[in-house]
Structure formats: C-alpha cells, structure tokens
Amino acid sequence: MTSRPRLATDVNYVNGLAALALFVVMAYVFMTSDVSAPAGFADGSIVASIGYAMFDMLDQGAIEAEGFLVAFIVIALVLDAALDGAVMLARREDDEQSVTALADGGFLSRTKETSSERRSDGDSLLGRNDGEDAGSSDDGGDD
C-alpha cells in the first residue's frame, strides 16, 4: 500500500509560466511605484495593543487600532463549525468499525474483507503482529 516518495513526473510546467508572468508583472509594478517611508508604530507594547484591540479595550492600548470583538466571536463560531464539518466528513458511512487505526485512510473498508482481517492488517501496519490470530479480542475495540 505504501511506497517510497518519487519525484513527480506529471507536473504541467507550461501552466506554471502563467504564475511566473504574474510575478513579473507584480514585481514590475511594486518596484516602479514610489512608496513613501513607513510611518512605524508609536512607543509601547505591540503585543499588548493587539490583545486590547482584540477585545475592544482600545483606550488601554498604546498603539492605534480598531475593535475586533465581533470578529473574535465570529471566528470562534467558524472554527467550531469547521470542526463539526471535519468530523462529519471523516465519519464513515457504515459506522460499525471506527476504532481501528486508519493507516490506510479508510480504503480497506470498501473491499470485501472481514473485520477480523482488517484488524490484523491494521496491527501489521503498526508493527505488532507477533503471533496474533484473527479471532483474538485484545484490541480494545468496540465489538
């Protein structure tokens, strides 16, 4: 199942020229523009000011910023939704054997093997197949 890494030979280098052309255009525009010297930050702790800006306590920060409390809440909800989405996507359709190590990404569950063969195969992938027959039940599984 596993194989050593090989150099990719199916790379489409011609399409990559578009990215190179994009970089040339962007570099030309940036280097020919006259940008004045950066203003820089006022004296004071930048990290503390970031923390105050994140929680809408702008009067305590040394450096000017905007409040981000609403964005903070929204990003918390988005991360929660992403976690739920990832779990939903990773869950198997036939939810009967979900404890074994998914060293194969769930590929073997689609083949016609029995669950005991699958379990011993997972053990061999983990390197501990020392004399264990397929019927033993010492895997701490859910059966």
Binding site: I50, A71, V78, A86, L89
Partner: peptide, 28 residues
Amino acid sequence: FYHGNLTGQVFSLFTMALAAAEVAVGIG
C-alpha cells in the same frame, strides 16, 4: 506598519484562524 495602525496585524491573526478552519474542512 506602513500606516502605524495595528488593525492589519490583528486582522492577520483572524485570517490565520480562518486558514485553520479551511484546512480542517479541506483535509476532510
């Protein structure tokens, strides 16, 4: 840094959190 305003730095933190969420869904 160019404008002397910390809004960009705080916003980049949120962008990183959004990237984490995107990768979680992407790997799924």
